[in-house]
Amino acid sequence: MAAEKTARRVPPAFFRGMKDGLPICLGYLSVSFTFGMMTTENGLPIWVGVLISMSNFTSAGQFAGTELILSGGMFLEIAVTTFIINIRYMLMSLSLSQKIDPNMTTLERCILSFGNTDEIFAVAMQQRGSVHASYLAGLILTPYLGWTVGTLLGASAAGILPLTVRSALGIAIYGMFIAIIVPPARSVKPVAVTILTAAALSCVFRYTPGLDGVSSGWVIIVCAVIASALSALRYPVDEEEEKQKEHDCGHPEEEAGR
């Protein structure tokens, strides 16, 4: 949809976005492949798995929701579980709202927010200056295709792959997360501190008797809010640095030619 919108005169930022989305696309192939296998192995027709991937475009939430569909869960149960897992998106979208081009129209915001996945969000946030609609559209398009095609392939190929291969693919999505958070942590100390705090808190929830029953959606949001708040108090973002960034993004051509 976003592609059609920009078809008349496609800005270079769109292609730059597509290119930046390519690694995410390849990572999504293996994760959605696992999802596709899960759907057909449990007796759902191929198109159902593909429809879920195309309409939800999220990992943890659609895995949990599909399991509830299969186990005969009620609509309310499906809604609440999926929502809790997805609460983090509110935090991420709020964060992204401060990063995108302030002139982005409401319609563009409504369309592009559909593609605000964990990985697309993280890559968008790492851009210099503000993020424009065409770049974001490209950044969403390639991973969306990967997510859909991966589901289709997985749903068609279920049963062919041995358990060992499927087990090995299970780690892929976390490998992606690590690839996104570790490099900036190396050069920016506050980022490293934030990551360590959030990871430590998450471990506390997991290994403390009594707390281990809290659902993962809540754990993520509580850990992220505490870790980000502590870092914000200890390492407030430098106003001057912000101004410098604003200044930098005044040259989109230069950035595009990077």
Binding site: A122, Y174, I181, P184, A185, T194, A199, A224
Partner: peptide, 12 residues
């Protein structure tokens, strides 16, 4: 700091 905190909490 939110992006890093969210991903770290999801991973570990």
């Amino acid at each position: 700091y939110v992006p890093y905190a969210v991903l770290a909490a999801m991973t570990f």
